[in-house]
């Protein structure tokens, strides 16, 4: 069927946008869980959890929307990534379930509170690590034959993916700490200020390793970045500028800017990664066009997405507006 516009490209945009929204938004609430074991006291944990409680499940909406959209628009991604990352997907789901349940029950618990603290922290760390490993596995590429994954169960688990996993744990923790700076005050905020530069250092280290390693494993990436000086170099430069702003704004005790700059750091790194790999969606063999579903199916679902995405965005904006400002924690017993 001839289409007047490139549906596959539109869908790549939608999925790319969805993943971006997910990483930025679920990132800072996963970050609370990652920082949970290091919190100085129970009061701080109350503030941390309350700062994200109204919005976290809305944030995870983007994961489910993205997952469903992938099956519909790029089934090859779905049918290669999930088998290849089989164990990792299980860990991701188990982690998300545990922390989701911890959200619900920690508020209602008294004597069993410490159990839910562990569930929240453990679930968040495992889920963040699994997501980071997925990014690493995407950079590594997948062993495929004839549109089918033919590698082993743990091919994805390499020193590189362990590092990207740990890197994303640090990255989400950074989003979490800068979010907390914005949403808290007093001792909690002071603690978050103290954490941020250390986390930033960890993130930058992983950023550097990935930047060196990626062109090394993939000749396409190498030629794209090094054959001629292209515009894409602006992306890592902007990312570094964001890192600088985070560092400086923390020193100046700015409240909102560290979080905004961290989102910028994530966004430019993400775009840089996409610029490296484009148009390969199942590297090293398949592009977005190889992975696409039939145009009539892409069109059928596009109508629904165009209807629902503005509603989800409006709902999200409204929730954030309602719960704007500092978290008040007085009188919580």
């Amino acid at each position: 069927m001839e289409q007047p516009f490139d549906l596959t490209l539109i869908w790549a945009g939608i999925i790319g946008f969805g993943i971006m929204m997910y990483v930025l938004m679920d990132g800072f609430d996963l970050g609370q869980g990652i920082l949970f074991p290091f919190a100085p006291d129970e009061h701080t944990r109350d503030v941390m959890m309350n700062s994200v409680a109204p919005v976290w499940d809305g944030n995870e909406t983007w994961l489910v929307l993205g997952g469903a959209g992938l099956l519909a628009a790029f089934p090859l991604v779905y049918a290669v990534f999930l088998p290849a990352l089989y164990i990792g997907v299980f860990l991701l789901l188990a982690g998300l379930i545990f922390r989701g349940v911890a959200f619900e029950f920690r508020f209602k618990a008294k004597t069993s509170k410490y159990l839910w603290n562990w569930a929240f922290a453990g679930g968040s760390i495992v889920a963040a690590f699994a997501q980071g490993a997925v990014v690493g596995a995407y950079i590594q590429g997948f062993k495929t034959e004839n549109f089918v994954y033919v590698g082993g169960a743990l091919d994805w688990l390499t020193p590189f993916t362990v590092m990207t996993g740990a890197g994303l744990v640090a990255g989400y923790a950074l989003l979490g700490s800068t979010w907390l700076i914005m949403k808290s005050e007093g001792e909690v905020q002071a603690w978050a200020y103290k954490l941020t530069p250390r986390l930033l250092a960890g993130v930058l280290f992983v950023f550097a390793v990935v930047s060196i390693y990626t062109p090394y494993v993939d000749p396409l990436v190498k030629s794209r970045w090094f054959d001629s000086l292209s515009l894409i170099w602006a992306l890592p430069v902007l990312a570094m500028y964001c890192a600088f702003i985070i560092f400086r704004s923390v020193q100046k005790r700015d409240e909102g800017l560290p979080f905004v700059a961290t989102m910028g750091l994530f966004a430019f790194s993400y775009l840089g990664l996409l610029a490296s790999k484009w148009p390969y969606i199942v590297p090293p063999n398949y592009t977005i066009y190889d992975a696409a579903s039939a145009p009539e199916s892409q069109l059928f679902l596009l109508l629904g997405f165009l209807f629902v995405i503005p509603i989800v965005l409006a709902y999200t904006a409204w929730t954030y507006w309602v719960f704007r400002g500092k978290v008040k924690s007085t009188g919580y017993h």
Partner: peptide, 26 residues
């Protein structure tokens, strides 16, 4: 589950199941 354990099935039926399951999510 469809993707992890039944990837051949998912891939073969994605043109139908993808949009239908997505509409359920929507």
């Amino acid at each position: 589950q469809f993707g992890t354990n039944w990837s051949n099935f998912s891939y073969a039926t994605a043109n139908f199941l993808g949009p239908v399951l997505s509409y359920e999510v929507i």
